[in-house]
Amino acid sequence: MKALIQRVTHAEVRVEGESIGAIEHGLLALIGVERGDSETDAQKLLHKLLHYRVFSDAEGKMNHNLQQVDGGLLLVSQFTLAADTRKGLRPGFSSAAAPAEGERLFDYLVGQAKAAWPRIETGRFGADMQVRLTNDGPVTFMLESR
Rank of each mutant, 00 (worst) to 15 (best):
L133F: 11
Q68H: 13
Y52R: 01
L75Y: 04
N65S: 08
R35E: 15
L46H: 09
L4F: 08
Q68P: 07
H47F: 04
F141Q: 01
T122C: 02
S77K: 08
E121S: 13
K2V: 03
F125S: 02
G32E: 07
F125C: 02
R86G: 00
S94A: 15
V76G: 05
E101Q: 11
Y108H: 12
A116M: 03
A113W: 09
D128K: 02
K44Q: 13
L27Q: 08
E18P: 00
A100C: 10
R53P: 03
A115H: 14
T85A: 15
G60H: 05
A96C: 14
G17V: 06
G72T: 07
Q43W: 07
L45E: 07
K44A: 14
E59P: 06
F93V: 10
V110S: 06
G71H: 13
Q6E: 15
W117H: 09
L30C: 06
R104Y: 12
A116Q: 09
Q68Y: 13
L133D: 03
E18R: 07
R146D: 07
S95V: 09
P118T: 08
M1K: 10
L50G: 08
R146Y: 05
I31E: 00
Y52T: 04
N65F: 03
D41K: 07
Q130F: 03
E121A: 15
E34D: 11
T140D: 04
T140L: 06
G123S: 09
M62F: 04
S19V: 14
A96H: 13
A127F: 04
M62V: 02
T140P: 04
A42R: 12
V8H: 00
L46Q: 10
W117P: 01
